[in-house]
Design a protein around this nucleic acid. Structure first.
Lengths: 186, 186
DNA sequence: CGGTACGTTCACAAATTTGTGAAGTTAAGG
DNA sequence: CCTTAACTTCACAAATTTGTGAACGTACCG
C-alpha cells in the first residue's frame, strides 16, 4: 500500500484543505471565487458547466496539474462528473492527460500555451461551416442573390482561417517579448 | 384592409409555397436542406436552435429580408418561437429589425457584412473574460505560478482584441478585391 | 495471486431548457 | 371609435441535458 498517499488522504477533507492551504499560502476562498467566476463566463460562451469548472480549476492551480481526486474534492463533484469533464477537455485539446509511471492516478495538465491555441483552433468548426456554405451556394446557384450572399460569407471564413495562422505567429513573438524568450513551462 | 396582402395569404400554405416557388424558381427543398444543415452547425458551436434556424433561413433568402409570418411558415414554428429567436438575434446584432411605415409587419434583415462582423465582435465576451482574469491575477498574486499563468492568458486576450480590428480592416480590402469595391447591399 | 485503489460506464432522477397555445398589447384602417 | 392584424408575454408540458450512485473493469502492490 502506498502509505504516503494514504496518510494525506485519511484525514478529513477540511483538515486536509487547511493543511494544504497553510503549506502553500493559497487562499482557497479566492481560488474558488475565480474558478466560479471564470467558469461562468465560459458557460455563457457556450461551454458545458463541468468542463468549464474543471478547466478553470486547473488554470488557477499552482502547478497546472491536478488529479481526478483533487478536482473532485475542490469542486465537490463526483468522480463520474470529473471523468466526463476531462474527457471533453481532452478531446478539445484543452488539457492533456498523463499518468505517472507506477501509479493508478491520472493527472490532468494545462499547458499555458496549448490551451489558448485550442481556443483559437476553431479550425474544425470553421471547416464544417465552410462545407455547409459551399453546398448551399451550389444548391441555390452561384448566380442567385442568396447564392452570392452565401458565397461572400464563405469567402470571409476562408479568409479568416488563413489569417488565424499568421495571427498566432505574431502572438508567439509578442509573448516572447513580454515574458522572455525561454519556453518557460507554466 | 390591405387586400393585396390578404389575397396571397388566404390561399393554403401548400398552394402558396408552390406559387412562390414557381415564381421565384427556387427549390424550397434545397433551401430547407441548407437551412437545417447550416443551423445544426451553428447549434453545435453553441447557438440555440431557433435563433440558428431563423438566421440560416434569412441568410439563404433571396432578398435577405423576411417577415415573422414568412419565417414561421417556412420553419413551421409558432409566432412565439419566431419572436424569441429574432429578439436574440437582434441583441447579438446578427439581424436588424425594420418596420415599413404604414404596416404592422416587422421585417428582419441580414446585412451580409453586418452579420459576420457580429460573429467576430466577441468584444463583449473577451472583455468579460479579461475582467475575470484580471481579478484572478490580483487575488492569487501576480508573483505566484498560478498568477503568472493567468497573466499570460490575459495578455493573450488583450493581444487578440487588438488584432481583430486590424484583421477586419484587411478583410474589407480583400472583400473589395474579390467582389468589387461597390457597397453592393446583399 | 489477492487485495485494493482508481477510473469509467450505465441507468436513472433532478433540473433546466425549449417551444407552444392562449391571453394581452399596440397600432393601422375603415 | 371599433375592428382587426400583427407582435409579445406568460404559464405550462415536453424534451433534453446534467450529475449522481452503483456496478464494473483494470492495473498496481505486497
Amino acid at each position: 500500500m502506498a502509505d504516503g498517499q494514504n496518510v494525506s488522504e485519511s484525514v478529513t477533507d477540511r483538515a486536509r484543505s487547511a493543511a494544504t492551504e497553510a503549506a502553500s499560502g493559497r487562499d482557497s476562498e479566492a481560488v474558488s471565487r475565480f474558478v466560479e467566476r471564470f467558469a461562468s463566463q465560459l458557460v455563457e460562451a457556450g461551454m458545458q458547466r463541468m468542463p468549464a469548472r474543471v478547466f478553470a480549476a486547473l488554470l488557477s492551480s499552482d502547478t497546472g496539474v491536478m488529479t481526478s481526486a483533487q478536482l473532485g474534492e475542490q469542486l465537490r463533484i463526483s468522480p463520474a462528473a470529473v471523468s466526463g469533464a476531462v474527457r471533453y477537455l481532452s478531446q478539445q485539446h484543452m488539457v492533456s492527460r498523463e499518468r505517472e509511471p507506477g501509479s493508478r492516478r491520472d493527472r490532468y495538465r494545462v499547458h499555458s500555451d496549448q490551451w489558448y491555441e485550442a481556443v483559437t483552433n476553431r479550425d474544425a468548426v470553421l471547416r464544417r461551416w465552410e462545407d455547409a456554405l459551399r453546398e448551399g451556394v451550389q444548391q441555390l446557384g452561384a448566380d442567385t442573390p442568396a447564392g452570392r450572399r452565401l458565397a461572400e460569407t464563405l469567402a470571409f471564413f476562408e479568409f479568416l482561417q488563413g489569417e488565424i495562422g499568421r495571427l498566432m505567429e505574431r502572438w508567439r513573438a509578442h509573448r516572447a517579448e513580454l515574458f522572455g524568450g525561454g519556453r518557460a513551462e507554466i
